[in-house]
Design a protein around this nucleic acid. Sequence first.
DNA 1: TCGATTTATTGAAACGTTTCAATACAATAG
DNA 2: CTATTGTATTGAAACGTTTCAATAAATCGA
Lengths: 325, 325
Amino acid sequence: MSNNAPSIQDVAARAGVALGTVSNVLNNPDLVSEKTRAKVQKAIMELGFVRNDAARQLRAGSSRSIGLIVPDVRNPFYTDVARGAEDAANEQNLSVLLANTDDELEREQAMLSLFEEQRVRGVLVSPTGDNLEYLKQAQKRGTGIVLVDRKSSDFSSVSVDDVAGGYLATKHLIECGRKHIAFVGGPLTVHQIADRLAGAKKAVAEHNDVTLEVVETKNLSVQSGRALGKLVEKFDGVFAANDLVAIGIMQACVVDGHVSIPRDLSLIGYDDIDFAAAAIVPLTSVRQPSAEIGKAAIELLISNHGKSKNIEFQPELVVRSSTLR
Amino acid sequence: MSNNAPSIQDVAARAGVALGTVSNVLNNPDLVSEKTRAKVQKAIMELGFVRNDAARQLRAGSSRSIGLIVPDVRNPFYTDVARGAEDAANEQNLSVLLANTDDELEREQAMLSLFEEQRVRGVLVSPTGDNLEYLKQAQKRGTGIVLVDRKSSDFSSVSVDDVAGGYLATKHLIECGRKHIAFVGGPLTVHQIADRLAGAKKAVAEHNDVTLEVVETKNLSVQSGRALGKLVEKFDGVFAANDLVAIGIMQACVVDGHVSIPRDLSLIGYDDIDFAAAAIVPLTSVRQPSAEIGKAAIELLISNHGKSKNIEFQPELVVRSSTLR
DNA sequence: TCGATTTATTGAAACGTTTCAATACAATAG
DNA sequence: CTATTGTATTGAAACGTTTCAATAAATCGA
């Protein structure tokens, strides 16, 4: 930015009015006579005046942005959440700024600090780690925090019942007649993943001829799934902790060639992203209402008057070819 | 944010030092003696002080954020670009804030204004429309602008030769023996799409027994592709303007059932997103170096001293099953 | 015509930082 | 012991808005 951007003062001088009048044109146009308003507008145009938001915020105290911190922008689930949040925010004339942490706690904290320093209206965050202490600190300082895709009694939150989702998925595999099931995903320290696994264990526990094995991955990317390669051959059913991993596994099977889905292997994912339906073998998945999650989170943030509130959606099984018998 | 967040003044009082010293602890720690620094740090902790970025920026003039405006966050191509940009920015201790416009010019302008008012370090933008006038205005006002995935002599830019890409794709279809080719995508007012079409026309013009027909869509989403349904039956080759549309078309064919890819129809997409390789039929595509584009754009923005500079990458054909003969 | 009311405009004060010239103090050299 | 240099600390000024009490101008009623 050039060092001498025109200020409200400059506009006032050029329009031949007082500085307060320019401010009124900007913020309370109906307090200003039509004639004066026109003069000021003209001066604004001619000078190319752009309001300095830093000064505005400093004086007015509040910002019109909301921060959204996600662990992986490349996961369509999160961009779907973001779209839902955006739509809800735009209705209130607020903007959503998206920040990516790449699963790194350090970046998560840096982004939170950035948003706190910017005094955003609030922050929606899908925390990657298990320690929410620093989020509590932020909340204590007065920053509105809403947890997304994660539940905690200390914050408002919008989540999906991941235990139920894991149970649904695994029960479906069992109903397809599968006996040797693998749960693929990680790191297991991630809450959502641990919950999905818990649900899976619950379903398996109801049948004493079914086994469940955990194959932990570094993260939930297509690459992680693909890297497993033949590892899946010893199983007849795989529950992947999200669709990206499932798609990766599917790619590995196709390259390998001699594992056929769903004949040799039933595969189920999680999230039901748009691409699940378009996969090599259309992927059975557990649907989370992503856009609604984003929308609900914004509403919670805006209406939050002290009390924290937890919204939990129920997941839904979407059966496609990858688990047909 | 609670109305009375502690200020530097409060910290100074508590630590028993002057306000300027606190500022130095924050910005020039080596100017402050170890003893004093410790006292101040302690006070900061105890009060839960968070620097007010608005005030900081107002006085210091510069921000540490860069805006990135994309037409569609749900298109993996753009999130890949974002990741590249982020990585490059983080190296310089800068943050990238992502804004989505959903192909709406109005939102594009609103987001640009937001970033301008925030006096960001610069804005990377992949403009949706054809009229770049308002971007020129912003540039004239002093905001650093770098065009992404779009070329113009008025701005620095990082683009890919879309005419060459369109040519590559179409030539490949022709080499597969296809005679009745459809170009699917839209709106054609979008520059990239028009260029890809131009490339396609060029390739077709070299053969007098090949026809090219344009099927215009409202946008480049999976839904748009899927909505076409049987429309594609009259062609034996389809060049989709991006992978999302191609995947949608593929879904429609699979549901329909009696169009087989690649036997009846050769299908090629554009962007080579991760999911292309994982599609029902692995999708041939034209690869754009997305992360490199983001990285180059940041570097251009940072090093931009007056002169505008255009970087153009060359696209690359990635052949998969959807166009095997 | 005059006071009362409404409407439009004014400009000083405040927001919380960074900056920087001024000052205080400590260490060193002669 | 003084002069010089270097190191730490200080606090007023400035950044560009919004806010708001005060004033000016216009309108109205009788």
